[in-house]
Design a binder for these strands. Structure first.
Length: 830
RNA sequence: GCCGGAGUGGCGGAACGGUAGACGCUGCGGACUUAAAAUCCGCUCCCGCAAGGGGUGCAGGUUCAAGUCCUGCCUCCGGCACCA
């Protein structure tokens, strides 16, 4: 045994098979131990796992294995977020049917994940494109419809006029369709929405209790929900019998108003400017913006002067009315007043169109535009009030004369769930010419996707399918058409964590009791890129399901860890198509982009399968954990994995060399044996706290430190055995295969998977001596070693005897000595 | 543009306001070997022979003491509602 190299390939296959045979990771609903639910965001089945997956699932696996060793009944499931755009793109590009393509990808990825040695309960696997899964969300939707949580309204989409296709935001590049290059148009379509705004306050309030979430994610969600207080008030259109309702969060700046601006799709825009010269051209220009907020915000701010004016009763003044491309119909009332002195955008707008800039808030000398609060000036009888007082006063005046009211406003908009695509869950409603929108009767669920679809033309294949959409109205018995929109894929990922609690239930989505047993997820792990959308939708969905009686929890994720992204360079060929790194190699017309987040759509992914094959799962896991703190971005490079593989071999050598150490524990320890034991127990305590704190890189550093200490300890005694066994057990969450093999090599007959976590002996955690620094005027001049319990007087006395300290004090007067026992001595002298 | 992060040796990163650079990667020197691989030992922030000096994106500030706290910037990354 001694001297033989560790055969990772054989050992990994051996232990994966043994874990599987023993079913050590399968978890029952009635396990008496306390539950712990570890969940990583489930993958989109792109076909191959990428390094981001390896990072995500390794992190989760460390937690799952650690918690299992700590005595919890760990639920650690896996599944597939299997609907989405890439399957349709593959169908268009290669002719593969989305269902087949997805099924093949799942098969390949399941096998790859299997080779990572993850402690997953595969018996709970869910696949969202399976009708057995999505039938339940069709029922949820019908329940939402009944309760008014789902509704239909018009909304704009990106329209490619050449392909006659709705484009996703990522398919719009510089305002043009990605395939056709045609300028996209904004087009209004009737679509389905979920009333997440009804839950805005509750979602905001809930953030306060999520202390297991990163502060930054809570802040992002808080800003996304965007609660603000403001004023909705009326302005009279001069010479017309119309009124325009305007929303503002800055009523205090009312007297600085220079203009009113309406959204281009505001109903009043056509009334005021409809037939006027140049207006249609202006609208056209606004239409070409696309629908993404980033595009709108970054576009040049343009306005159209309607020639009309508006009068306000409080202000007692008129201002011109513009139509402006930066005003959003979805937010507030779709109309704002512009105050150039105190808003960046209004300032630029006023300069561009020659509008007056009147300062009404004292900026204490700061240049305009000044967007902060202050004392009011140039505001008539409001002068002298603070911003807060003036806001309240303007709202009070509007309310007393009936022209306005103070309102709480949210930036959050309702969630549009309609997608004009094939590869998604069909929305279970019918459109009847007599009865309007009619829900599909529950007995007819699930509405399944037709298999025979045609991807040779652009657009939604469901909409042009010859027979699928024709149905009979359950209400009147007449002919009706199926809804051809499918759900946003965030719909599936908004409840999968509950399905894992009861994955084989054919009658309902999940049993409330089972969900109540496992939920909330104790530790959820995924990328920061999901900080807002997925996590907010899932929080909302859980509340909506609770209101429908599905479950009793409101917050689905108690603990959240957002890992950093794995980045890689991008490659694009002359035709503008993204290439995989291996495709790009050796081609000459390739543009290399800077390292950015790995994504399937940009194809800048590396293949972990090769790494697993060459170095083994344990080495790959160790490298990805030790290279960077998990919350930070990680640029993937091949360098370093050899170091991890070397450590795996080194650990094996340390263990096999000490396999014969005595099992019998002596009564007393002193000298090197005691020092060895201190190192062992310090490592046990340190690795445990590091895992709990998600400092996996520090935990792996501690494993190396303990390994170094063992290597430096020549005796083959019980202390050596204790240290080596501790190292093996501590490394099990990180290097599960090697740990099992080493545990067996040390003579154990039981598996480490399921074995308890080692406990640190607190009596051994304190070192006998400490080395502290001695500073003179804040600069380090010496270090002194003292007993760990030396008091301040002893520290000071020792510090003053250090030769170099005396040298620096020569000719100076000591003014003050700061002593922090066990830490530092600082002598202030001059 | 708006919101949220991050910047420390050649590189990834450590560091309750208290000895900056743990642990590793790379590199250099050495041992073992016929040789190589593997392994082991030593060195490795910069300048300096040394004493010492400088150093945590930039500019200030608070403190006996600042990578850490405060103010103002710079650069990079993520999200922005139809990628997932």
């Amino acid at each position: 045994m001694e001297g033989a190299r560790y055969d990772f390939a054989a050992a990994e296959a051996k232990w994966q098979a043994r874990w599987s045979e023993a079913g050590v990771f399968a978890i029952g609903d009635d396990d008496p131990r306390p539950k712990y639910y570890v969940l990583e965001m489930f993958p989109y089945p792109s076909g191959r796992i990428h390094v981001g997956h390896v990072r995500n699932y390794t992190l989760g696996d460390v937690v799952a294995r650690y918690k299992a060793a700590k005595g919890f009944a760990v639920l650690h499931p896996m599944g597939w977020d299997a609907f989405g755009l890439p399957a349709e793109n593959a169908a268009i590009e290669s002719g593969a049917h989305p269902a087949d393509w997805t099924a093949q990808n799942i098969k390949a990825m399941r096998e790859q994940l299997g080779r990572m040695g993850l402690s997953l309960d595969w018996g709970r696997e869910v696949t969202t494109c399976d009708p057995g899964y999505y039938r339940h969300e069709q029922r949820m939707f019908l329940e939402f419809l009944k309760r008014g949580v789902a509704y239909r309204k018009e909304a704009v989409v990106n329209w490619d006029p050449v392909d006659s296709t709705v484009l996703a935001n990522e398919q719009v590049i510089d305002g043009k369709g990605w395939r056709t290059g045609a300028p996209v148009e904004r087009r209004r379509l009737a679509q389905w929405f979920l009333k997440i705004t009804d839950y805005a306050q509750d979602l905001l309030d809930g953030l306060g209790g999520l202390d297991g979430w990163p502060e930054k994610v809570r802040t992002m969600q808080e800003h996304w929900i965007g609660r603000s207080h403001g004023l909705k008030f009326l302005w009279d259109v001069i010479d017309e019998k119309h009124k325009i309702e305007v929303f503002t969060t800055r009523p205090d700046t009312l007297c600085g108003a220079a203009f009113l601006a309406l959204a281009p799709d505001h109903p009043m825009a056509q009334t005021l400017a409809g037939g006027k010269p140049g207006f249609q051209a202006f609208l056209q220009q606004c239409q070409s913006l696309g629908t993404s907020e980033a595009a709108i915000e970054q576009a040049e701010k343009i306005g159209y002067d309607t020639g009309c004016s508006a009068y306000n009763h409080i202000l007692k003044r008129t201002v011109p009315i513009y139509i402006a491309n930066f005003v959003l119909m979805d937010y507030g009332t779709g109309a704002v007043f512009g105050c150039p002195a105190h808003d960046e955008r209004d300032h630029a707008f006023a300069l561009k169109y020659g509008l007056p800039i009147t300062q009404v808030i004292d900026s204490a000398g700061a240049p305009l535009p000044y967007t902060g609060d202050g004392t009011l000036i140039n505001s008539g009888d409001l002068d002298g009030l603070t911003s807060a007082e003036a806001k309240a006063e303007v709202i009070r005046r509007c309310e007393s004369d009936g022209t306005g009211r103070g309102v709480t406003q949210y930036r959050l908009r309702d969630w549009g769930v309609s997608r004009q695509r094939y590869w998604g869950c069909p929305i279970p409603v019918l459109h009847c010419p007599n009865c309007g929108v009619v829900p599909v009767p529950e007995g007819d669920l699930p509405v399944t996707l037709p298999r025979d679809v045609d991807f040779s033309q652009p657009g939604n294949p469901l909409a042009r399918h010859p027979t699928w959409k024709h149905a009979t109205c359950p209400t009147c018995g007449g002919p009706a058409e199926r809804e051809t929109d499918t759900f946003d894929t965030f719909f599936e990922s908004s409840w999968y964590f509950a399905r894992y609690c009861d994955p084989h239930n054919a009658h309902k989505a999940f049993d409330a009791q089972k969900a109540g047993h496992f939920l909330p997820v104790d530790q959820y792990i995924g990328g920061v890129e999901h900080a807002v959308l997925h996590l907010l939708y899932a929080r909302f969905f859980t509340r909506a399901l609770a209101d429908c009686g599905y479950l009793d929890v409101t917050e689905p994720f108690k603990g959240l860890f957002t890992q950093g992204m794995v980045t890689h360079a991008t490659y694009k060929n002359a035709a503008g198509r993204w290439l995989f790194p291996h495709e790009a190699a050796g081609q000459d017309d390739v543009t290399v982009g800077p390292p950015i987040k790995m994504s399937k759509s940009k194809k800048n992914v590396v293949d972990p399968a090769e790494i697993l094959g060459a170095h083994g799962a344990d080495a790959a896991r160790l490298f990805i954990l030790s290279d960077s703190p998990p919350e930070r971005d990680l640029e993937w490079t091949a360098a370093g994995i050899e170091g991890a593989a070397r450590f795996v071999q080194r650990l094996w050598r340390l263990v096999t060399e000490r396999a014969g150490t005595p099992q019998q524990r002596p009564q007393h320890f002193d000298g090197p044996a005691l020092t060895m034991r201190r190192a062992t127990h310090t490592a046990i305590a340190g690795v445990s706290t590091d895992i709990e704190a998600f400092h996996m890189n520090k935990a792996t550093a501690r494993l190396r430190e303990l390994a170094n200490a063992i290597a430096d300890y020549p005796a083959r005694d019980w202390a050596a055995r204790e240290a080596t066994e501790a190292l093996v057990r501590l490394s099990a969450p990180f290097l599960p295969h090697l740990a099992e093999e080493a545990w067996e090599a040390m003579g154990h007959e039981t598996m480490l998977a399921g074995a308890p976590w080692p406990e640190a002996d607190v009596a051994l955690l304190q070192a006998a001596e400490v080395t502290i620094g001695v500073q003179v005027n804040g600069k380090l001049r010496a270090t002194i070693t003292l007993p760990a319990d030396a008091d301040a007087a002893a520290c000071e006395a020792a510090a003053l005897t250090a030769p170099n300290v005396r040298r620096f004090l020569e000719g100076k007067t000591m003014r003050k000595v700061i002593v922090v026992p066990g830490k530092i001595v600082n002598i202030v002298a001059g």
